[in-house]
C-alpha cells in the first residue's frame, strides 16, 4: 500500500496557483523529497497533506485515510515538523513534549517512557527542564523532531528540517532522520532546497517549481537524465561557444556569468575535441573542468535556472523570520 497517494492536488490563493495539479505516490517506508526554490509550493503541499490547508481541488490519501473526508484519521497518522518554529518557548523541553503527548492521548506511563527515549535520542535529555527560549536553533529543531515522533506516526513530514543550521548540526540531523526511517520504518516526506540534503537522504526526489512537479525519480536517475558528465568552461566568449559546439553528442548547453556548461555522455572522449574546436575558433578558455552532474545541474537542465540564483541564502531567510518575530513580541 502506498503511504501517500496524491492526485491532481491544487491550491490557489485568489487567482494565484501555488500548487498546480500535482500527482505522485509515496511508498511505505520511503524517504521522499520535495526539492525546489523559495515559493515553489513545497510548504503549501505539506500544509494540504497535513490537513492545515484545504485543497482547492484534487484528492489525496495519507496512510490510506482520505484527506477530504477523514481529517481526523489523517491527523492521527502523521507527525509534522513545520518550517517555522512551533514550540512554546515559555515551557521547558519536557513540558512541550508532555503537552504533545496529552494532545495525542498517550497514557501517562507510556508518555513518560517515550519522552525519555526520544529526548535521549536527540541528545536533549540533560536539558529537558530548561525553558525552550534558552535553546539554540539546532536544539529547537531536534526537539521539534522528537516531538513529532512522540505519538509514533506512520508518516512524518519535515518541512525544511535543516534550514539555517550549521553543517555539523545538519549532519547530525541527517543521521537521525536516516535512523528513524531504517529502525522504525517511518515514511518520511521532506522538503528542502539543499541539493546535498535531497541527494543524501531521499530515495526519490520530486523537483517542484512554480507549483508543478517537473521531474520525479531517484537522484541517480535524475542525474543520468542530464547526461553522464558536465563540462564547465570558464570563458569571456560565452556567446560564441554555443554556436561553435554543435556536435550531436552535446545534450544541452547553457551559459551564464562567464561560465558555459555542457551536458554530455563520455566527456573524456570528447574533451579534446571541444578544446580543438574552441582553439580553432580563437575562443579564449580561462579554465575547463569535467565532473559528474549534481542535482543542481538537474535543476538547471529542467528549468534553465540554478536553484541558488533565485533565492536568498536559506540562513538569511530564517534569520529574517526571527527578527520579524522578535520585533513583534
Amino acid at each position: 500500500m502506498s503511504a501517500i497517494h496524491v492526485e491532481n492536488l491544487t491550491r490557489m490563493f485568489h487567482d494565484f496557483v501555488a500548487v498546480n495539479k500535482i500527482s505522485f505516490d509515496i511508498e511505505s517506508g520511503e524517504i521522499f523529497g520535495l526539492l525546489g526554490p523559495n515559493g515553489a509550493g513545497k510548504t503549501t503541499t505539506i500544509s494540504m497533506l497535513s490537513t492545515m490547508l484545504k485543497p482547492t481541488s484534487g484528492t489525496a490519501t495519507v496512510n490510506g485515510r482520505d484527506l477530504l473526508t477523514d481529517e481526523d484519521g489523517v491527523r492521527k497518522s502523521i507527525g509534522i515538523v513545520f518550517q517555522d518554529q512551533s514550540l512554546d518557548e515559555e515551557l521547558t523541553a519536557y513540558e512541550n513534549m508532555d503537552f504533545h503527548g496529552r494532545l495525542y492521548r498517550i497514557p501517562k506511563n507510556i508518555r513518560e517512557e517515550r519522552i525519555f527515549e526520544l529526548l535521549t535520542l536527540v541528545e536533549l535529555e540533560e536539558r529537558k527542564n530548561d525553558l525552550v527560549k534558552t535553546f539554540s536553533g539546532g536544539m529547537r529543531r531536534r526537539l521539534e523532531i522528537a516531538r513529532g515522533l512522540l505519538h509514533r506516526p506512520k508518516v512524518l513530514f519535515l518541512d525544511e528540517p535543516t534550514l539555517g543550521l550549521d553543517p555539523q548540526t545538519r549532519n547530525h540531523l541527517w543521521k537521525y532522520i536516516e535512523q528513524l526511517n531504517e529502525e522504525m520504518g517511518i515514511t518520511i516526506i521532506l522538503t528542502t532546497h539543499y541539493m546535498e540534503e535531497a541527494d543524501r537522504l531521499c530515495d526519490r526526489i520530486a523537483i517542484i517549481d512554480h507549483g508543478t512537479i517537473i521531474a520525479l525519480d531517484t537522484a541517480q536517475n535524475l542525474k543520468n537524465k542530464v547526461g553522464g558528465d558536465v563540462v564547465t568552461i570558464q570563458t569571456p566568449d560565452g556567446d560564441r561557444i554555443s554556436s561553435t559546439i554543435t556536435a550531436p553528442w552535446v545534450e544541452q548547453i547553457e551559459q551564464r556569468d562567464g561560465y558555459v556548461t555542457i551536458n554530455l555522455h563520455n566527456a573524456d572522449k570528447h574533451l579534446s575535441e571541444i578544446v580543438t574546436l574552441l582553439n580553432g575558433n580563437e575562443i579564449e578558455i580561462t579554465s575547463i573542468s569535467v565532473r559528474k552532474p549534481t542535482l543542481e545541474d538537474v535543476f538547471l537542465y529542467y528549468t534553465g535556472r540554478t536553484i541558488r540564483e533565485q533565492e536568498a541564502d536559506g540562513r538569511e531567510a530564517i534569520r529574517m523570520r526571527m527578527v520579524h518575530r522578535t520585533a513583534r513580541r
Partner: peptide, 14 residues
C-alpha cells in the same frame, strides 16, 4: 498564532 504554537494544537487529532 504569530509564534507558531497554534499550529501544533491545530494539527493534532483533537
Amino acid at each position: 498564532k504569530q509564534f507558531g504554537f497554534l499550529k501544533e494544537t491545530l494539527v493534532a487529532p483533537v
